[in-house]
Design a protein around this nucleic acid. Structure first.
Lengths: 140, 140
DNA sequence: CACGGAATATTAGACAAGCTAAGTTAGTTG
DNA sequence: CAACTAACTTAGCTTGTCTAATATTCCGTG
């Protein structure tokens, strides 16, 4: 009964709700929304096309168009074109976008680090061991 | 270095993003939104007042008013009044609301259970051990 | 090479979820 | 009792998402 998947599932469901809640609290009051930071993150390693961004974030293309419009208005990304295919629009970080991304990432990591530092070493080890398992969920 | 909080924080951040993503995918296409199910869940153990619901879900009162309006229109909750204080509106599940909540919960648990069943017993144990630690995050 | 279909993106229009500010009604207190 | 406070609701805004419709470009076939 200790490792009954259904029983475990109920506990996981509770914890997941807690975590979602936490994340929402973390990102309240930031200059950009978490979705927008997510998009910036996708551009970290170079330009991407609209379709790729939409797939990355599991949204429809028009949704991504709206997001990129706003980020472009804010000067954080720039649109370009693919020389090989004029239908394709590319998107890349501006210098300011890159800076913003780094700042936010640092602040997020710092927050999390503070929370993790409050745990015991055993707890951190337990958590670290579970991360690969959590990462596996949903990949099936 | 293995248990350096900053390093761990980076990994946790990645996994959390993954989990949020997962949850969003789970709740796509359901008849109600996950927020609405969340509200139904808060009513499971009896009537609550608007302020209490808003606090539960960390939203402002007007947001909760809108949610309850929709759930009331859908026949899933009913508003009442507090006999001791006429300013207070209470909200409780209707029979249909309770049924809907149970259905969704069953289906969610079933989904999660299926995913967990695909793991090895060791992985489930690792996950189970980490749940209390995850639940501790953000409580500080 | 012209034409039709496929691919890429944007625009338009809808809805949910959140916010703040302002309004209403009902208790509470000097 | 008048003024203040508390509990909600309403109104109006922004963001994020969707689908449907449109524009533009590419490609394959006759």
């Amino acid at each position: 009964m200790r490792d009954d998947p259904t029983h475990l599932a109920e506990q996981v469901a509770v914890v997941l709700r807690h975590l979602v809640f936490l994340l929402r609290r973390y990102s309240a009051g930031q200059p950009l929304t978490s979705q927008q930071y997510g998009v910036l993150g996708s551009l970290e390693h170079g330009p991407r096309r609209m379709t790729a961004l939409a797939e990355d974030h599991a949204v429809q293309l028009p949704t991504m168009t709206v997001q990129i419009n706003r980020l472009e208005d804010a000067g954080l990304v720039a649109r370009g074109t693919d020389p090989a295919d004029a239908r394709v629009r590319t998107v890349e970080l501006t210098a300011e976008g890159r800076e913003r991304l780094q700042n936010v990432r640092r602040s997020r990591i710092a927050n999390l680090t503070r929370e993790l530092a409050a745990l015991t070493e055993d707890e951190r080890a337990t958590l670290a061991a579970a991360l690969p398992v959590l990462a596996k969920l949903g990949r099936s």
